[in-house]
């Protein structure tokens, strides 16, 4: 109840939005309704395709809950295409004029979000890769930071060397090395990690390689974030813990690191946004994130409009995670 009271306004806003979406979604024309609008010639070609071994008609149906889009196109000498947009019980031809732009927007947004694809596509790839990278990067970074400030000279040198290496070389090259060089040298393929029956193993393999490269790289950057946060903690905290008989591990794990988390959050938030943008480097190993998809659409269709939904998608993602980091920071500064 307390919760409801505290967030009364946003809850009402969200409820209204959800209600509108449900109503609009219920009124959305079905795929069959869109298909029935196709020209007789196109209908005939679709029929013929059923018996052909080399099919000719590409049917693209994309639904964004409240609006949907159907594109029918043929390849070959007589290239024809038809586009339709469905919205609130109506089907609009979208071959020219403003509806064409609407249709393109639906199409681009759908593709960049990675709808109808697995987790290794579009916005889903970007968000998943970024989130996991930050999580693993922070874990690795904490270990490296503790190593770097440790009194053990060997440990400290190893950590410093690691940080120097991964910060001093480009992420793109690290990605190439993880994806191409390492399997080449050791004679394995990333897709072999997944069952041979998995048709999408190649993308999952590439994603695994990307995640490893990104996490190894981010670990080096996070190490510096964690180290500076730890070193900003008052020396008295270490002394108090030591005087109470706590071991180094207990002191770090229970006293110092919990206090440094709050100081890390703004920097981790920055790192998150950096990775969000760096995620576009996965184009180099055949994965498609938001940037890569928008670039592809740009080159294959010559549409400069594609970058507008791309910007919006990125902004929505950063706004959402910015909100989360803000909440986290508040949560961790409760004692101040």
């Amino acid at each position: 109840m307390k919760f409801l009271k505290k967030y009364k306004k946003p809850i009402i806003v969200i409820a209204v939005i959800v209600a509108v979406i449900i109503v609009l979604g219920a009124l959305l024309p079905t795929k069959q309704e869109l298909l029935s609008c196709a020209s007789p010639e196109m209908q005939k070609m679709i029929e013929e395709d059923a018996t052909r071994s080399r099919k000719r008609v590409t049917e693209t149906y994309e639904s964004l809950i409240v609006i949907n889009y159907l594109s029918l196109s043929t390849s070959g000498a007589q290239e024809v295409s038809e586009h339709y947009v469905g919205f609130v019980r109506n089907v609009y031809p979208a071959d020219e004029g403003p509806m064409k732009v609407v249709g393109q927007m639906v199409n681009y947004t759908y593709r960049m979000l990675g709808c109808g694809e697995n987790w290794m596509h579009g916005a889903k790839l970007t968000v998943l890769l970024t989130t996991l990278t930050v999580l693993f990067g922070l874990l690795l970074g904490t270990v490296l930071a503790l190593g770097k400030i440790s009194k053990n000279k060997v440990l400290s040198k190893i950590s410093s060397g690691y940080i120097f290496f991964f910060r001093g070389t480009p992420l793109l090259i690290q990605l190439f090395v993880v994806y191409f060089t390492v399997p080449g040298i050791f004679g394995f393929a990333w897709r072999d990690i997944f069952p041979a029956s998995d048709a999408e193993a190649v993308y999952k393999g590439a994603f695994t390689a990307a995640l490893i490269a990104f996490a190894l790289n981010s670990g080096a950057y996070c190490a510096e974030i964690v180290r500076s946060a730890i070193q900003s903690i008052d020396k008295g905290q270490f002394e108090a813990a030591k005087a109470l008989g706590m071991t180094y591990g207990q002191t770090m794990g229970r006293i110092v690191i919990p206090q440094s988390i709050r100081r890390m959050i703004p920097n981790v938030s920055n790192e998150f946004i950096m990775i969000l943008k760096d995620a576009s480097l996965v184009f180099a190993i055949s994965l498609m994130d938001i940037t890569t998809i928008s670039k592809n659409i740009m080159t294959s269709e010559g549409s400069y409009l594609v970058f507008i939904p791309a910007l919006v998608i990125y902004l929505v993602i950063t706004a959402f995670f910015g909100f989360i980091f803000n909440k986290l920071e508040k949560r961790f500064s409760i004692y101040e």
Binding site: S53, K55, V57, P183, G184, S286
Partner: peptide, 30 residues
């Protein structure tokens, strides 16, 4: 086109450089 028309079911791995394709073939990724 072969894929989108439903003629065959394939996974397409598209690269910027043709050399990447051959490395992937050599490594067994594709």
């Amino acid at each position: 086109d072969y894929k989108s028309t439903g003629t065959i079911d394939i996974q397409i791995v598209a690269n910027e450089k043709i050399t990447s394709c051959f490395t992937q073939l050599q490594n067994g990724e594709v």
